[in-house]
Simulated assay, not measured.
Amino acid sequence: MRLTRSATIAALLAALCCSAPGPLATSAFAADAPATAAREGWYGHRVDGAFVAGYAVLPKPEGVTIVDSRPAARKYDRGHIPTAINIPDGQFDKLVDLLPADKNQLLIFYCEGVDCMLSHQSAFKAERLGYTNIKVYAEGYPDWIARGNLGAVSVPYLKKRMDDGAPITVVDSRPKERKYDKGHIPGAISIPDAQFDKLRDRLPTDKARELYFYCEGLACSLSSDSAVKAVRLGYTNVKVVPEGYPMWAKLYGPGPTGEMAAAKPTIQAGKEAGSITIASFERILRDAPDTIHLVDVRAEKQFRAATIKGAINIPIDALEDSLDELPKGRPIVFFCTSGARSGDAYDLIKEKKLPVEAYFLDANVKFDKDGNYRLEEN
């Protein structure tokens, strides 16, 4: 009986040791880990996604460098393994100084999957430079995402999405008073990770919305912790920005403070004359809903079934006879279901040359049975 219990305990300990991902994973485990049979031209020492997951965590572990060998703008910037640096294989010699000075440090190279040779080529180059602890994650980024892991984006890519007016939500996971209020990425909302459950209603109702979480750089885990919570809530397009606010401030200067953020949001014009972008519309509703008037120009029956909080109803067929009923003192944003009737409402205001600052939401507005809505580009 004593031998049976000892054997059972030993088996449990072995299982725990081998199944728990983390920076304590060993090179011996890595050598036995590859999930795909070797191919001609591949680097000999390979690891799988479970091994990589032990190192692709925040705060970034010491003693390991994960290298993305893919092109920057087309691949790395749009999505990469968290904490990975970018050394495109075609620029390896130019960017080799990004590798650690310690030639014994663990290096993990990856690229775009089993048909991609860039990571293997870079691994051989690093070996010729004298690095002694090199691994290749041959299945690469596609496998990383397929396993359900979080992807990361670069700060320049995030800024490009913002500059393009893309319908995204940026979340600052740092403490509000100590960090966010002293400077944050423009347009970001504050949901400190410690208050995530309490403030999660600040997240968009559309679970397919692009969410980008950031905090205080590679030494901070708050953003990844919050991102995981968002995934558990059912959000399907969640990424982290590991370099976070420190990199934003380095590249683009300090962001707005809490006091500056409280100022009136700017209405960003859309592609159609008189339209407002989805991103601008949602940002205003989230941060300063009292700075605009919402007018739902759908039929009364549709309005009573569901509308956007704070809206009044003036059906488009009744608008010309109800111009005196339009709210005053703030910009008006007309909306409907597809942007057609709201566009007609805007055109009528312009035709009548009314002294009203008006816009229309050129988007598909879809309501669910609970009255929640999501916006989609036309």
Rank of each mutant, 00 (worst) to 15 (best):
A72V: 06
R74D: 14
R74I: 05
T36F: 13
A56C: 08
K94E: 12
P71T: 04
P59Y: 13
Y43P: 00
G54H: 14
A53K: 11
S27C: 09
H45Q: 13
A28R: 12
A50H: 15
S69E: 08
K103H: 06
Q91Y: 08
K60C: 03
G79M: 03
S27V: 03
K60M: 12
P82R: 04
D102M: 06
G63Y: 09
P59N: 12
V67S: 09
Y43S: 01
A38D: 02
A31G: 12
P100A: 04
D93C: 04
I85Y: 13
V47F: 12
S27F: 10
D77W: 11
A53H: 03
V52A: 12
P88F: 05
A35C: 06
G49P: 02
L99Q: 05
L98S: 10
Y55F: 14
P71G: 05
A33C: 06
P59T: 14
L99V: 01
L99I: 05
P71K: 09
A25P: 00
T83V: 15
I87D: 02
V64N: 11
V47Y: 08
D48F: 06
A35L: 14
G41T: 07
A30Q: 09
R70T: 04
L58I: 10
F92G: 07
K60N: 07
A31Q: 14
F92W: 11
R70K: 12
A53P: 01
T36L: 15
V96P: 00
A73P: 00
P71S: 07
F51L: 09
A72I: 03
D68W: 02
E62N: 15
H45L: 10
L99G: 04
A56G: 07
V67Y: 03
G90C: 02
P88L: 11
Y43T: 01
G63I: 01
A50P: 00
D32I: 04
E62K: 15
A73G: 00
D48H: 09
P34T: 03
L95T: 00
T65V: 13
A50G: 14
A37Y: 07
D77G: 09
D102W: 01
V96H: 02
N86C: 09
P88V: 08
T36V: 15
I85F: 11
A28G: 08
D48T: 07
P88A: 09
T83S: 08
I87W: 01
P61E: 03
G79R: 05
G63Q: 08
Y55G: 00
R46L: 03
D97P: 00
A28T: 11
A37V: 10
K75A: 14
A28H: 10
G49Q: 04
A30H: 05
F92Y: 15
L58V: 08
I66T: 00
T83L: 11
D89P: 00
A50W: 15
D68I: 03
L95N: 02
A31Y: 11
A30S: 11
V47Q: 07
R39D: 01
P100V: 01
P88W: 03
D77S: 12
F29A: 13
R74P: 00
